[in-house]
Simulated scan of single mutants.
Amino acid sequence: MGMKVKDQHIAVFGESGSGKTVLLSSFYGASQEAGFVDRNKYQVLADDMAQGLRLAQNYLRMDKEARVPPTNRFGAQTYSFTLKPDGDTAPAGRPFDALRLIWHDYPGQWFAEDPSSEKESARRLRTVSDLLQSDVAIVLVDGQKLVDYAGEEEKYLKSMLWALCNGLLNLKGDILKNRKKLRTIPRIWILALSKADLHPDLDAPGFRDLIIEKVGDDVSRLQKTLRGFVADSQAFSLGEDYMLLSSAKFEPGKILVADRVGVDLITPVACLLPMERVAQWIELGIHPKAVQALLERSGVFAALLDGSVGAAAGKLFGKVPRVGKLLAPIAVPALQGALKLATAKAKAMRDAAVAKHDVVTAIVTQFRMDLEDGVRDGLLVKRP
């Protein structure tokens, strides 16, 4: 029997120069360093070897030559990486054997430029349609621009948010065929500070406060715009989650690629934050039908964490309406209230999984702890 691979999509939006290419190169390049597999128990394989080579070259040129990749070098592309567990025993009945992270990039120049032809307009629509497969979207806020506009950050932030909002509105008629709203769309939108190394005194809660203070109304406008695309728009989140991201530390004449911030959180955020959020929505009384597709995709992660939530989850399951066959196999174990009490148990479960060479379970439980570590270390703000 072939290996069962679980696909997880993430969409990344950012203006030209906001650091998307450097971020992607850092994500992949760091995974190729000696010692990565020993520490993380999995290897990261680029599904497109040519893409992997380009990203590795970018990373090595940053490290060895202090050369930053050209802006928007790759244009509108999708990048696919398989996280293959190392030395895994693949126990029977496990929902998947490997993870595939599919990274969708929205080209920065599209924020500021109209399409030059019908062909380019069609290409933009296809790209956005691909992006909408994701559960999580990251909107990059350029840390260098915040430095440039110190004291009047709202001038940059408003421009960036308006460009994204208007760009989506221009495509709305083509995306919503017959005015039918979408059920498959990123329901979690994270605002992320790129080049966070330029702001050493700013943590994720401070970044959140800056955004709310300077452009809270504009974030609300973007949220309203996106809700206009979404079926069952109560199950939607923007302005509640914030991250710090720094692909490297930049100093005169050198780039310290080992000094990354938040990059290691990208995969845990893409995989487990949707599971937590859908659990919160259900607890708040949003019917599971509203997030049926999200439940199905995140349920496989919940199945691996099932052993760490125990009886507490069982008490909460009774509150959750059943939706046909959907909830029967997964029983909504991904309830945030149950996951919160599992920190110590998750560590024990991870250690037990490592001892049994059940590497997939060990990885997922580690991802769960990584999210909590990110919150504790001030790199991540999640909806409470």
Score class of each variant (00 low, 15 high):
V332D: 08
D114S: 15
T71L: 13
V128S: 02
M243V: 08
L176C: 05
S31E: 03
A50L: 14
V359N: 07
R221P: 00
L327V: 09
L169S: 09
D148I: 07
G17Q: 06
R94Q: 11
L161P: 02
V44K: 10
K145E: 14
Q144N: 09
A92I: 11
E113W: 01
Q234A: 09
L339T: 03
A312M: 11
K155L: 14
P288W: 00
E65M: 10
G75Y: 07
I185K: 04
A90D: 03
L83V: 03
D86I: 12
I211R: 00
I211V: 13
G87R: 10
A46K: 01
K20F: 05
V332G: 14
L60M: 13
A328Q: 12
K177C: 08
V278A: 07
Q366R: 15
M275R: 12
R124H: 05
D217T: 09
M49L: 15
K41R: 14
L99Y: 03
W281M: 10
I363G: 09
D174M: 10
V5S: 02
D241K: 11
G108K: 09
A11F: 11
G324Q: 03
S121Y: 13
G314N: 11
N40I: 06
H287W: 01
A92L: 11
V5C: 02
A344V: 15
A338T: 00
R94L: 03
Y28I: 08
L371T: 05
L99E: 12
L164K: 10
